[in-house]
Write a protein that binds this DNA or RNA. Structure first.
Lengths: 289, 289
DNA sequence: TATACGCTGTAACAAAAGCTACAGAATTGG
DNA sequence: CCAATTCTGTAGCTTTTGTTACAGCGTATA
């Protein structure tokens, strides 16, 4: 029904039938296209040196209901132009027999990923990578009910890359003993998305009190731990599901792993090779007779 | 006098001192940045699910006189971005002499996701969802060294949605006892990506012999288990890193969770509600009236 | 020169946007 | 548990915006 119209083309097409005043308006619109048209009608009329009704008349001539509709079209164009190239993946092959649910889901994930990347402060990423790269630091990780898997995944890799990495036990009642080891050299990596968990907040506070560096992975709204964390990564987690998606968190985790590993390749290499050897020599599981 | 302020940075800087409602607004603003903020205050408030005064309060917190001033800043940013399309995403390298490693990584992930979706047969997806949805079946999950976390993540959700879900212990030497329970009604979900593990293959064969349905999540090349698996999902895992990326696998997992949950909402609902009651977690988000 | 007609601005007005004050709700701290 | 504090929405208000009606102006044509 209402397909997107490119205002610039509409002006081009009608250029012949435009009156002098119309032209002054369209000049203004095209000069800083399409953003100029996103100001108020008064400002535009002013900038063009015409009256506001003239602007409305132009909008009508271009086929819009009124000025706000013209503005909507311009806003859409601005949005489309600004969207990162990375977002272009959103096009979907039509012929695929996917259920619309799957399609919507996947599209939401793409959306979340680009928004998360967009929102991530490069400096934060860099600082986190630097902290993780510091061999003198001890690293502790834990997460909430769901995000525990993310912590686990991160731990899995970190622990291979560098020494001094610990995944906290799942039960909060044994956390205090880990706290003993958390001094100014410690780093506590926490995962806390909505349905924020009190235990995690308490742990964070205690660790902070002992001087640990807190790195938090949370959602777009931010766990209460944000207030005391040294570095915060906000990931978009909403998808059309009754569950949240932690894929954006995973992206940052994997990117961090890649970053840390590449910064200290030599050191990590030895550890990995040693590990490979050990895995080869322990084969416990045997086929049963 | 009026130096241009980058709204995104202002939000980033203040992120800790923002209230939940503020965050919902900033979330909307950042999602389609900066164009989303060029709509009327009413529309924005609506989209964020908050009242208009909240939007004004956020604008003030960010240091603006009122909403129109915030909007002016956003408009300037939009204009600037459109004028220099090349410099758009390049805050990455410029910032600190950072290599565009992160960007390359992210782009590889996007490619992997699209390719994985492309390659995934909708019928396979459907069949897997159907199997998972069958309450009479018992479900067992396990993965390899790295993919164990993925199995864990899947388990976490499945176990909440439906009964009869078991995550195999990490050590292969206790696997045989699980095999006792794997009959024709059993489903074994395996994760095996390159550096394919022999133990997993053996487990798969034994389970198959006992009549279990095998669902395999593997990489683009395919674990040897592919030959005997009933359903196989191939995910693209290569990224510019010395590690592989399991994000594409996660996407399919999450999509399956969403699918299964929505197919049997009633049954799952009770379980989840019961669980919610058991967990005492902070309630941050209010339901909209 | 008269007059018809399109172009444009002025002025008045309805709609909406933006803002303020206040009170109820939620959260925090004792 | 209650008091203090913070957060947030409602209702009402002012301002601005978008719109309409109309009248003046200029030009073209008879």
């Amino acid at each position: 029904m209402k397909q997107p119209r490119i205002v610039k083309d509409l002006i081009q097409d009608q250029t012949a039938s435009l009156t002098p005043a119309d032209r002054q308006v369209s000049d203004v619109l095209l000069r800083d296209y399409p953003v100029a048209g996103l100001k108020s009608i008064t400002k535009i009329a002013d900038a063009a040196g015409v009256s506001t009704p003239t602007v409305i008349r132009l909008a009508r001539k271009l086929g819009f209901e009124g000025f706000p509709e013209l503005q909507d079209a311009l806003r859409d164009e601005a949005s489309a132009r600004i969207k990162q190239p990375i977002r272009k993946h959103e096009r979907w092959p039509e012929e695929r027999g996917d259920s619309p649910r799957f399609r919507d889901f996947a599209e939401a994930v793409f959306d979340n990923l680009s928004a998360t990347i967009d929102r991530l402060d490069p400096a934060t990423f860099d600082k986190i990578a630097r902290v993780l790269n510091d061999r003198r630091r001890r690293i502790f990780l834990t997460g909430g009910r769901i995000t525990r898997s993310n912590a686990d995944y991160f731990y899995n890799h970190l622990q291979i890359i560098r020494p001094g990495v610990t995944l906290l036990s799942q039960s909060p009642n044994v956390w205090p003993q880990y706290l003993l080891d958390m001094n100014g050299r410690a780093v506590l990596i926490l995962f806390d998305v909505r349905r924020y968990e009190r235990d995690l907040a308490r742990l964070a506070q205690l660790a902070k009190d002992r001087g640990a560096v807190i790195i938090l992975f949370t959602d777009q709204w931010g766990s209460p731990i944000s207030k005391i964390a040294d570095h915060v990564v906000n990931a978009m987690i909403e998808v059309p599901s009754s569950w949240d998606s932690t894929i954006a968190i995973n992206l940052i985790i994997e990117a961090l792993i890649a970053e840390v590993q590449s910064r200290r390749w030599d050191a990590a290499k030895d550890r990995i090779e040693a590990l490979e050897d050990m895995f080869k020599s322990t084969r416990i599981f045997r086929k049963k007779p």
